[in-house]
Design a protein around this nucleic acid. Sequence first.
DNA 1: TAAGATTGACCCATCAATCTTC
DNA 2: GAAGATTGATGGGTCAATCTTA
Lengths: 149, 149
Amino acid sequence: MPEVPNPRQLAAWRAFLEAHAAVTAVLERELQERDLSLAWYDVLLQLSEAPGGRLRMGDLARSVLLSKSGLTRLCDRMESAGLVRREPIDDDARGLVAAITKTGRSTLRRAAPLHLKGVQTHFSRHLSEQEARTLTTALRRIAEAARGS
Amino acid sequence: MPEVPNPRQLAAWRAFLEAHAAVTAVLERELQERDLSLAWYDVLLQLSEAPGGRLRMGDLARSVLLSKSGLTRLCDRMESAGLVRREPIDDDARGLVAAITKTGRSTLRRAAPLHLKGVQTHFSRHLSEQEARTLTTALRRIAEAARGS
DNA sequence: TAAGATTGACCCATCAATCTTC
DNA sequence: GAAGATTGATGGGTCAATCTTA
């Protein structure tokens, strides 16, 4: 196993960084038209898919790829905006759940078509089915290994 | 052409986001041992590869995927650390170049083995040659399209 | 008037320390 | 003491406005 990446591998790494920067920038810009960011959208999405529309703060933090303190502050802002609500947990007074509100659900419903179209336009559209499969398996492998580090 | 991504395409998008978050987090952590961040490393790398070790501020900003103001502040910090130096341009008094210093070059030389090994360990190692090729072409296509938006 | 770069105001994320409950 | 979440301090990024020169 070589110690360092060869030029073709470095090209893949560079393309990965550039694609991420470019695509997330466009999607952020598009979501701003709905007064959302990618992070806010992601919180609403994860909550909407969770049973009861609720997730523990710590679990939600991991789902949306944020630190715990980062999620605390994000929830502060989203709670002020009326999109989520914090609730105590019955069997553990240390913990809290974030719950999506009615307003949160309708905000997500209104934003989803725009955002999904954005993902389609700026990402998926440029991938063949075969390429999408390759990306998924390869990038999952990478993410899992990196998380273990 | 469908309006929205299908589930397999959404899986690719999610894997893309998660891999980026996980890998950059590890690489940032590793570079901290050399008092560097990915952004600092990238600035040093781009400058070291440019003719004369110099790039105009605006060009450098684009190379390292930052806004112009973001690069101004990054250069402030790196100049304080002695890694780069701002210099006037002969034929355009509005412009400045960032130039890598001796210290900057030696810092990059010391950090490069660690960082390249990190890219190898946390990214390239998990890709077959074929997968790396697919990623490169597909992600370049995506990045170019998004930049045009 | 436009281009290149910087600045001010502001937003948002992280780490380490803290508070509460287990 | 450990776990869950928050807070204070801090670092680092963006946009819009500004300054200077072309």
